[in-house]
Design a protein around this nucleic acid. Structure first.
Length: 471
RNA sequence: UGCCCCUUAGCUCAGUCGGUAGAGCAGCUGACUGUUAAUCAGCGGGUCGUUGGUUCGAGUCCAACAGGGGCAGCCA
């Protein structure tokens, strides 16, 4: 056996020929008097290979073991299919079963299961139509991300996953420590694992100071952009927020481009180009999987994606958006006033009702945005942007960064942050500072958008959320 | 973190007023010369999430716990 062999995807695209083999897992079997049909899947593409087994070809014992979930190698001839739904099929002459799958206990079936149930058997769900498609599209999208940046001369940079800088400021962090040790407690009826804290002094911890999992690679990416000009990160990101929604994960993958000599206008242009490029790439290269999502998951998916790939995004300033919201005539649960952050219901109205496609909001009040965003001349707003998309809300958050040393320093002090910790970040403004901008994009939110999947936990193989780290 | 909902067969669900359990699919057996979520007939399948309480009697009412989910906030 060798990984260099013919896969289901290749067989389905081949002309009839003798002496072929196919490896995979049985999805279903159908029996008639003189013939049995097996749908064989190996994950190489959306469609299954239909295996035709004439009665008497295989021993009864073998045929009986060809149940949903079994892994098998079929040998035979690839022939033109007289039935509808496929151009070729494999006429079996032999079958070797590697692993049987007891149909009375195998939890996957050919008929509907809920997303919630499949999430609890996440180690098996990839064998079904939906999750096979999700993870193929995920891989294609990741490739498209790299391709997009590579074609534009961006350098992929690897910012640290463990960070001792608690100044990233993007949310609650997970601690990374060796001061804790697991101990078994046998005093109760059932033994349980407890934590023992060696001591409470961070100086004796592994890194000699408190360390955390990164919540953003942005600040480090900025340092790399101040030498490589155009860079991006694409890696895991961690937030210890107690968020329980269909669009938050504790561990997710984020894409963060950062560009030197670039204004917010260039940043917006990149964000829009990026989204439209990835969507077009998937329309061109994942059409079978997208057709399935359009048919079974989200009926408006294809028309929406095609529309977005071919039309420019609406641009609005925060202040204009607030005016639209105030005169909308809608009765929101929370009224919209200038100076406060937009509620989810406001964002939804703007992108779904008012505009009907992605919208970029810019120039937010400085008090509701991060310290590093560049201040406008009005002294009240900053060069921030959020890209909002129908159905999923905020998909991108970015800004032009504050490149003026004095303004940045006073902003850090104003917000009560420990200025000593930012010494290296401030150095960028001391030595060859340059206007620069970037954004952060949640990869799983992008995947929700392009697949139509409704819960972010269903576009990552194993989700990490508060109270859940199974598998 | 706050508010709300759900948990009955392997899966998806019904179960009225509190009176001791139902369907479809899956599985098994059989029928059918080529099916596409095949079809048809028959059969088996239950600690009603767990613990406690109210009651003559609890799937049904109450409480706690466990698991799952929705909305909001935080954000990507």
């Amino acid at each position: 056996m060798d990984y260099r062999r013919t896969y289901v995807k290749d067989l389905l695209a081949s002309q009839p020929q003798t002496g072929v083999e196919a490896f995979g897992w049985v999805k279903t079997r159908r029996d008639s008097k003189g013939v049995s049909f097996v749908q064989l899947s190996d994950g190489s593409c959306f469609n299954d290979l239909q295996i035709v087994i004439d009665a008497g070809t295989l021993p009864d014992e073998t045929l009986k073991l060809l149940t949903t979930g079994a892994s098998v190698r079929f040998t035979g001839d690839l022939v033109a299919s007289p039935g509808e739904g496929q151009s070729v099929e494999l006429k079996a002459t032999g079958a070797e079963i590697f692993g049987a799958s007891d149909p009375t206990t195998y939890p996957l079936q050919k008929k509907g299961a809920t997303m919630e149930f499949l999430r609890e058997i996440a180690h098996l769900r990839v064998r079904g139509n939906t999750f096979g498609a999700v993870f193929r599209v995920r891989a294609q999208a990741a490739y498209a991300v790299h391709k997009f940046f590579y074609e534009r001369g961006f350098h992929w940079v690897h910012t640290p996953i463990i960070t001792a800088s608690d100044c990233e400021g993007a949310g609650a962090m997970f601690a990374v420590s060796t001061l804790l040790e697991a101990i078994e407690d046998h005093s109760g009826e059932t033994p349980q694992t407890l934590w023992k804290l060696h001591n409470q002094n961070p100086k004796s911890d592994f890194f000699g100071k408190p360390a955390f999992l990164t919540v953003s690679g942005q600040l480090e990416a900025e340092t790399l952009a101040m030498g490589l000009t155009n860079v991006y990160t694409f890696g895991p990101t961690f937030r210890a927020e107690n968020s329980n929604t269909a669009r938050h994960l504790s561990e997710f993958w984020m894409i963060e481009p950062e560009m030197a000599f670039c204004s917010l206008e260039g940043d917006m242009k990149l964000a829009e180009e990026f989204l439209r490029y990835v969507i077009q790439y998937l329309l061109d290269n994942s059409s079978q999987d997208l057709d399935f999502f359009n048919k079974r998951i989200e009926p408006e998916l294809l028309s929406t994606l095609e529309h977005v790939a071919n039309s420019s995004f609406e641009h609005l300033t925060y202040s204009e958006a607030v005016k639209h919201l105030e005169s909308s005539g809608e009765s929101f649960e929370f009224p919209c006033t200038w100076g406060s952050d937009l509620q989810a219901e406001h964002e939804r109205w703007l992108t779904e009702v008012k505009v009907g496609r992605p919208v970029i909001l810019t120039d937010y009040p400085k008090d509701i945005k991060a310290f590093y965003m560049r201040q406008n001349e009005d002294g009240k707003t900053v060069r921030a942007m959020d890209v909002l998309a129908p159905r999923i809300g905020e998909i991108i958050g970015g800004s032009q960064r504050e490149e003026r040393l004095d303004v940045l320093e006073s902003r850090i002090k104003e917000m009560g942050l420990p200025i000593e910790a930012y010494w290296w970040y401030l150095d960028l403004r001391r030595f060859g500072s340059a206007p620069h901008a970037g954004f952060g994009l949640g990869f799983e939110r992008l995947l929700m958008y392009v697949t139509g999947m409704k819960n972010i936990r269903d576009v990552i193989p194993y989700h990490r959320t508060p109270g859940n780290a199974e598998f």
